[in-house]
């Protein structure tokens, strides 16, 4: 039976590691989501958020080639869009204001990221 649990959802993927981004991309599409991006830099992330009126959720890598993803996260939070952080850093490195956002610590399998995303979207 085909899993289409994210059918029709528009999910932004911000991840600078190609292999991870690619796999996430493929898996999200497999379960019916439409992937916005993926993008690998903060500038691209901010640009694509501004240019995309409809975003249902986002998976954000914490560190993008040395830049922290938080400005982009702020914009998403402002719009009330659920986000999931995927981070190579400890919880300490995440500012207080993002405490509520679910977080997956690398290394993490794609399936777990998606499970976390589903919870953030209150689909489970």
């Amino acid at each position: 039976m085909t899993d289409l649990s994210l059918n029709g959802r528009r999910i932004l993927v911000v991840e600078d590691e190609y292999l991870v981004a690619d796999e996430l991309h493929m898996e999200l599409e497999r379960i019916g989501a439409t992937v916005i991006g993926p993008v690998a830099s903060l500038a691209d992330a901010i640009a694509i958020i501004a240019a995309t009126p409809h975003i249902d959720g986002a998976v954000l890598d914490g560190n993008l080639k040395g830049e922290m993803v938080f400005p982009a996260a702020d914009q998403l939070l402002d719009r009330g869009i659920p986000i999931v952080f995927v981070s190579g850093y400890d919880a300490l490195a995440i500012p207080e204001r993002f405490r509520q956002a679910p977080r997956c610590d690398k290394p993490v399998g794609v399936r777990r990221i998606i499970e976390t995303l589903k919870r953030a979207l209150e689909l489970v």
């Binding site: 590691e17 292999l19 991870v20 690619d22 560190n63 190579g88 290394p107 993490v108």
Partner: peptide, 16 residues
């Protein structure tokens, strides 16, 4: 922090 980041990224790459 950087070392942690690299290591975890590396594992993510290995996984992928």
């Amino acid at each position: 922090a950087e070392l942690q980041h690299r290591t975890r990224n590396l594992m993510a790459v290995v996984l992928s």
